[in-house]
Design a protein around this nucleic acid. Structure first.
Lengths: 232, 232
DNA sequence: TTGAAACTGGATAGGGCAATCCGATTGGTA
DNA sequence: TACCAATCGGATTGCCCTATCCAGTTTCAA
């Protein structure tokens, strides 16, 4: 509504009072911690408690939960995109490819919230969507390189990366901290099935749009209620 | 409390009045439908509405949601256990093995509720636990046969089947009906990575107990809120 | 036919959630 | 120093969930 000064990266038209800025930092730090531990299902109240601020303070700074999520995972999304760049710098295309795959899945495992973010993709924020798309184009080049080197099966499709993230999210969410390394085995299995030559044909990939719609479809909210507290 | 007649499979010590029995059937049928469509996150109220009975009627027959879930998925669990038996009857151990794998994952894909049930394993019910364990021992034999035939990699562990179910649940939950066949590709990839000879070593399997604890840990409740109703 | 136990379902309790309101407090400037 | 607006946080709203209560209804045996 307010015209003028529409810098795409202009963060602070109003330089926030000092205490407000301090609380903002606290809230983000707390949210980072809580979302990583409990997933996106964590309640706003628990974040406020962890941050030591009132609930209203949080909602004034982040009018909706989605905005908080976007703020918290912005830099993690950067790291995600960076991982692609690192992989593209690897002189060995295959090594770069599997390195990226392991790194990306490790991020999912290290942060339950991020695992949710990667697979749900609800209208989080423009910036994150951009990052995701940026990463995606990089991944396509990564894949092409690995195929050209003859190490990646020819029928590998970029959408397979999305599928892996979904599968990995399932493993990570289900195992939790009871078996924190289970995902490594699953990813290793995937990688071996990707290696050329293919051992056989595969069912067709889902349509490109279909996966995107699927990610939009899934609800942002409830996953992994913190503690049912079944003391029985 | 009431002593005597503790038949393990004695379902009806009190032969339920006719209308009550009729409503019981209706409720189970409705729950089957609703859970399959919306996952275990579906509310009891929605089941009651679908069944055309009052909420209280449902809670009298099934005092807790877990009991309803157990009643609904009892026969599906039978089918799951039967699939193992079918696979064991296959003269070709490898063919039987992959056939079972596909069948089991297909069940997950066909019924969101069942997908939840397979991976959460919250204290659903004794009968289902038995079925699950029964299936498990069968699967171990299936695995041993396939290994003995030289078609399944030697380092395959029974717990890998659990991991696959978790991964598949992730795919099925994330894709939903937007890409209803995406899981097939994932499962095919898994199968190719299982085939002997192994293409390389794998990270160790999680401890046996760890997975079980992981399954107990995950909360029964909220998954996939039916419709965010984003009319925007 | 009749009566009581079993059954029915709407209204309601009780808890968790995201999000809002308002009186008290604090920051920064004149 | 003194003031006002920005900020603070506890109480509150509104919604959805599982689960319970209770007055009216139905089944079934005598």
């Amino acid at each position: 509504m307010t015209p003028g000064s529409q810098h795409p990266d202009g963060p602070a038209p109003q330089p926030l009072r000092s205490d407000a800025e301090r609380n903002r930092e606290r809230i983000i730090a707390a949210a980072r911690k809580v979302f990583a531990r409990d997933g996106l299902g964590a309640s706003m109240a628990s974040v406020a408690r962890e941050a030591g601020v009132g609930i209203a303070t949080m909602f004034r700074r982040f009018p909706t939960k989605e905005e908080l999520v976007a703020a918290v995972f912005a830099d993690r999304m950067d790291a995600y995109a960076d991982a692609v760049a690192v992989a593209l710098d690897d002189p060995d295309p295959w090594h770069g490819f599997i390195g990226y795959l392991e790194a990306a899945c490790a991020m999912q495992a290290a942060d339950y919230g991020f695992a949710d973010v990667l697979t749900t993709s609800f209208p989080t924020a423009k910036a994150m969507e951009e990052r995701r798309n940026e990463a995606y184009t990089g991944m396509v080049r990564l894949i092409d390189r690995a195929k050209a080197a003859g190490r990646l099966r020819e029928d590998f499709d970029p959408s397979d990366l999305v599928l892996i993230h979904m599968a990995n999210a399932g493993v990570v969410n289900a195992t939790g901290d009871a078996a924190p390394d289970a995902w490594r085995r699953v990813v290793a299995l995937f990688i071996q099935s990707f290696e050329a030559p293919a051992r056989g044909p595969l069912p067709a990939s889902p349509e490109h749009d279909a996966l995107h719609r699927a990610m939009l479809r899934t609800s942002p909210a409830s996953l992994t209620t913190p503690e049912p507290d079944t003391t029985s």
